[in-house]
Design a protein around this nucleic acid. Structure first.
Length: 236
RNA sequence: UUUCUGGAGAUGU
């Protein structure tokens, strides 16, 4: 199955989920990684229903037990579908099987609840997590930002820095979204400018477009135009 | 070999 697993990942990077599925079907003696790889591939290609179907098939048709990687991917599928119904079932199962201690699984739970509109649950899980990594913080900052809790997102960012973790490109997208949704325009500008200066992270197309969007919504069109003229990605 | 986080816009009521 080894080679097949790699090929599935490769196809999914090109968004070719049908091709990935053909390969998956052809693998005989699928191992746990084959299933995990395929379910994750479905998520990456945004075919979340397919991912959930594969998960069901895994439970029914083979003797392999899902592991923490499996559940993280399945939860991503639930998040993609905004399906609190499936998500809660998985959560309950995780509690029963004690698989809810894994960082990746918890990150996926926080994200799932945030995306499914149960932000209170997301907060509780985040707070209870014993270990957090960069993805944990990024997920939570973005979740707050998406819910319009901009100031809170900035607080959490400060807490993150206090732990000694260095923000990355994804962190700043979360912060910019937070500033955008909460109307914290000057703070957004500050973050955009500081990411390169203090963290040597070059803004990419997402950062630029979020910033320009924010300036546009605030009616600060002259500044928006300035950033557009500095925009290094052509005329998207 | 596999997991979890990242922008905007577009339809309808």
């Amino acid at each position: 199955p080894f080679v097949g697993n790699v090929i599935i990942t490769m196809y999914s990077k090109f968004n070719l989920i049908e091709e990935a599925q053909k390969v998956f079907r052809l693998i005989k003696d699928k191992d746990i990684i084959s299933w995990n790889t395929f379910i994750a591939a479905c998520s990456h290609c945004a075919d979340h229903e397919k991912g959930l179907r594969a998960f069901r098939e895994m439970l029914n048709d083979c003797s392999l037990r899902p592991d923490d990687f499996t559940f993280a991917s399945v939860l991503a599928a639930c998040a993609g579908l905004a399906s609190i119904y499936h998500g809660k079932q998985i959560h309950a199962h995780l509690i029963r099987t004690k698989l809810n201690q894994d960082i990746g699984v918890n990150n996926a739970l926080v994200n799932m609840y945030a995306k499914c509109g149960s932000f209170g649950y997301a907060c509780n899980i985040f707070k209870k997590m014993l270990h957090r990594n960069l993805v944990s913080w990024n997920t939570f900052v973005a979740g707050l930002g998406n819910h319009g809790l901009g100031e809170k997102a900035l607080e959490i960012f400060d807490q993150m820095k206090a732990t000694g973790l260095k923000p990355d490109s994804v962190t700043f997208i979360g912060l910019l979204v937070a500033c955008n949704h909460a109307g914290l325009v000057d703070k957004g500008l500050y973050f955009f400018n500081s990411m390169e200066e203090t963290y040597s992270i070059a803004p990419n197309i997402e950062h630029f477009s979020c910033l320009i969007d924010m300036l546009g919504r605030a009616g600060r069109l002259q500044e928006a135009e300035e950033y557009m003229s500095r925009y290094p990605f052509g005329r998207d």
